[in-house]
Structure formats: C-alpha cells, structure tokens
Design a binder for these strands. Structure first.
Lengths: 142, 142
DNA sequence: GTAAACCTTGGAGCCGGGTCCAAGGTCAAG
DNA sequence: CTTGACCTTGGACCCGGCTCCAAGGTTTAC
C-alpha cells in the first residue's frame, strides 16, 4: 500500500457536487447544517474530500427521497458516526415517518374525494347571479 | 327597508376573527394578500366589516382545506368579484389541483412502500461493524 | 503572462402562510 | 378619571432547503 496519497484521488467541492449531481452551494449548506463533516483543506484552503464523501452524499440523497428531513438525516448520520449501528434508531424514525405519511395520505385522499365531488358538481350547479357572498362550492355546513 | 344601518351589525376585526376561528393577524394578512378587500373604517380608523365577510373568510378556509393555495383562492375571489361566475375557472383549478394531488398521492404511496420495506428489513439486517461509509439501507444501486 | 475556471467567505433572498411585537390611539365599564 | 380591552401601523421573524451574490485568492491551460 502506498503510504501517502492514500485515496484514489481527492475531490474538490465542485467535483464532489458533479459526482452526486448537486451544487457546491448545497454541499456547503450541508456542511453548515452538520450533515457532512468539515473536510480537510488543501494548503490554499480548498476543501478536499475523501471519495467516501460521495457515499455519504448519496446516502443523504437517498434518505431525502425517502422523505426524511435533513434534521432526521443528520441524527442518523450522527449516530452512525459515533460507531453505533443506526439501524434501530433508523427504524424508529422510519416508523414515525410512515405514520406521518399515512396521516398525510388519508388527508390527501379525503381531499381528493371532496375536490372531485366538487368539480363534478360544478358544471351542473346553476350559478346564481354574482351575488357577493354566495358561491358554488358547498364549502361550509350542508 | 330601513335606509342606513343596513346590516345587522358590523364587525370589528377581532369579532370577525372570533367568528371564523382565526386571528386578527391572519385577517390583516389576507387583506394585504388581496384575499379580502380593505373594509370600511370607523371614524377612528377601526376596520368595520360587513357580516358577509364571514362568508368570504369561511370560503377561504374551505378552499384552503380543499388544498388550494392562497394565490389560487385569490384568483377565484377576484374572478367572482368581477361578477363573472367563477365556476368554470374553479373547475379548471380544481381539476389541476386534483391532478397534482394524484401525483403527490402516487409519490407518497411509493414512498410509504419503500419505507415500510426498509423498516421491515432493518431489524433482521445484520449490521456490520460501524465502518464509516457503509450503511444498512440498500439506498443506492442494488 | 494572462485569461478562464475554479475556489473561498459570509450574508442576503426566496417560497408560503402566517406569527409576534412595540408604540401609540380609542372605547366602554365602573 | 382610570383601567383594561380593543384597535392601528409596519416591520421583523419563523420553518426548510436551498440559491445567489460580491469580492477576492488559486490553479490550470494556452
């Protein structure tokens, strides 16, 4: 194993951004938000990332697609970084988020039904003269 | 018909807020946002609302519960206020929003499935040593 | 040697839908 | 007359997740 220059090649922030399809601004934002650790710097101050950062970012992106909030993801990463397997807390988080999702799904489904009923009723609803204060949707009451 | 003092009784902003279960701040916000017209003022400058404002606010609340954005609601109200029956544009809006909802529902359902699968897989997934860069969820790739 | 392309920083701005505040005016009850 | 509840204004602030900017330093390509 060659001693120094360990990794295949270190990435600058723009390369990292390109590698995962995001922007340098977003990466800096994640760093500020504590999602990724401050990377090493080149002598001139440039951020210099280990290629493993790609994994970390892809994990963040995956978790984001799963609907986790950045704060949740930060929690998971923090747990992982301590050396504890994050699976248990992750399951906790996931179960909670699934429950949230179910609530949301129920709400949206009800909404959809209502809106469809409304939209169907509209064309036939005989629209009274534009009397202020009256309107077609049977919004409140009966 | 009694000439003046027409309405049963005019409402002050706090009364209006109480009547529909919101805050005076929200009502002022709606006014700024163009959802409700600037009301008459008492000689001392207090807002003085026609009771019809209750209908308008309840309509706004109903439309909001239906998932319309304030800007959409403003459009509807603006159309209505010109004397044109808003049913057609309303149907347009509704159909569009329903399509949006369907998209969102599909997304969330897929998400739910994925998250459930993940959560179910977690407890059995044998967690490898806390090697940085690795993690349980089969997020990317296979 | 010089220009282009990269990097650095901190801070502001954006979306939506409000919420909160301070300083001051007004009104009704006792 | 005083107290307290209400009202006025405009502006700042909040959440989340970025995005954009300006002014300056560095590295790379020709």
């Amino acid at each position: 194993m060659s001693s120094s220059t360990a990794a295949l090649h270190r990435l600058r922030v723009g390369e990292l951004a390109d590698a995962v399809g995001t922007s340098t601004d977003t990466i800096r934002y994640y760093e500020r938000a504590g999602l990724i650790p401050p990377p090493e710097r080149t002598p001139s101050g440039y951020r210099s990332y280990d290629p493993a950062a790609i994994d970390r970012l892809q994990f963040i992106q995956g978790a984001q697609r799963l609907g986790l909030r950045l704060s949740d993801i930060a929690d998971l990463l923090a747990i992982r970084d301590t050396g504890t397997c994050p699976c248990e807390p992750a399951e906790e988080l996931l179960r909670r988020r699934i429950a949230d999702l179910d609530t949301e799904l129920a709400r949206l489904t009800a909404l959809r039904d209502q809106m469809t009923a409304m939209a169907d009723a509209l064309p036939s609803a005989d629209c009274p003269p534009p009397r202020p204060g009256t309107w077609c949707p049977p919004s409140e009451g009966r």
